[in-house]
């Protein structure tokens, strides 16, 4: 599998995207990772159809809880009699949503502000840098915890939103910095200067030349971030301020299962495995995408 990507025949010319997709399809790591993520997305979307029980249904027929897997509960039940498999399925919803939405928000904010700062320079740049400085310098966990305390709505169902907002506010500056740095470097490159000299508009330069060329670091950073956000939600849950019970997220399940580490380690293992596999798949896919789109790898 190792030699595939390096020895692609390039007999007929293709569009860069098609070429990249072709390379991606022939990378087994990428395919497996994408498959896993696709399965997870399906699971998350159709959780109520897939899960045999509701996430908060308590089976009170057991004398000892938590209980190991049996015919009724394929991954066992937790200490309250809730079906672990069902909670994992519903947990995928929360954890994936947290990861994907947050990174999308980050990319949108980060890319627009980062490009603006790098391209307009002047006080735009100064303002953004001061703001990101402050946000960056701020202990992010401290900030998130404080924010969660304040914006926690009275309706516990909205605790999702609280977590989204808190983590989004804390995490966008990283992306903004990255984009700005890349853009600063790119705008000095010959091809950008050439474009500028023949009168191409700023907007076009940014969208046609600068943005595509910084795609790979953005993708690398974003995939790391999706994982980071899922873990950040887990940490908030660990501190008792993440997703509110009875709603499950993998992070919540991990922190709920932690005291059972030595008696019923599977309570911790299953959500940790789900989390670990997802994070790995995201990272492998991110790397593969990066390689596939890299123009220098194409020859």
């Amino acid at each position: 599998m190792t030699e595939i990507t390096d020895t692609l025949p390039s007999t007929k010319p293709m569009s860069p995207t098609a070429e990249a997709m072709r390379r991606l399809r022939r990378n087994p790591v990428a395919v497996v990772s994408a498959l896993i993520l696709a399965v997870l997305v399906v699971v998350a979307l159709f959780a109520p159809l897939i899960a045999p029980y509701s996430f908060d249904a308590m089976d009170r027929t057991y004398a000892v809880m938590p209980a190991p897997p049996d015919a009724k509960h394929r991954l066992g039940i937790d200490n309250l009699g809730q079906d672990t498999f069902s909670r994992l399925v519903y947990g995928a919803r929360v954890s994936l949503a947290v990861g994907v939405f947050l990174v999308l928000i980050q990319v949108v904010i980060g890319v627009s502000l980062g490009l603006l700062a790098a391209y307009k320079r002047g006080w735009w740049d100064t303002l953004l840098m001061r703001l990101t400085d402050a946000m960056f310098a701020f202990p992010d966990l401290l900030f998130a915890i404080l924010l969660v305390g304040i914006i926690r709505p009275t309706d516990p169902k909205l605790s999702f939103i609280t977590v989204f907002v808190a983590l989004a506010v804390v995490n966008w500056p990283g992306m903004a910095r990255l984009v700005r740095g890349q853009a600063l470097a790119l705008r000095e490159k010959e091809f950008v200067e050439a474009a500028r000299s023949i009168g191409v508009t700023d907007f076009k330069i940014v969208t046609r030349h600068i943005l595509p060329n910084m795609l790979s670091p953005i993708i690398v950073a974003a995939t790391v971030d999706v994982a980071g956000m899922i873990l950040a939600e887990a940490t908030l849950s660990f501190l008792g301020i993440g997703i509110q019970p009875p709603y499950p997220s993998w992070g919540r399940m991990i922190s709920d299962g932690r005291p059972y580490l030595r008696s019923e380690p599977m309570l911790l293992f299953y959500p940790a495995l789900a989390l670990g596999v997802t994070v790995l798949a995201l990272n492998f896919l991110g790397d593969a995408v990066r390689d596939a789109f890299d123009p220098r790898l194409r020859e």
Binding site: T2, E3, A227, L231, F238, G251, R258, V279, L280, N283
Partner: peptide
């Protein structure tokens, strides 16, 4: 893209795929 690359990055990634409190 060789085995060592995958192995190294795999180990590195596994080590961060779980939160410190696990």
């Amino acid at each position: 893209n060789r085995l060592l690359d995958r192995a190294t990055m795999g180990v590195v990634l596994v080590s961060v795929s779980l939160p410190p409190f696990v």
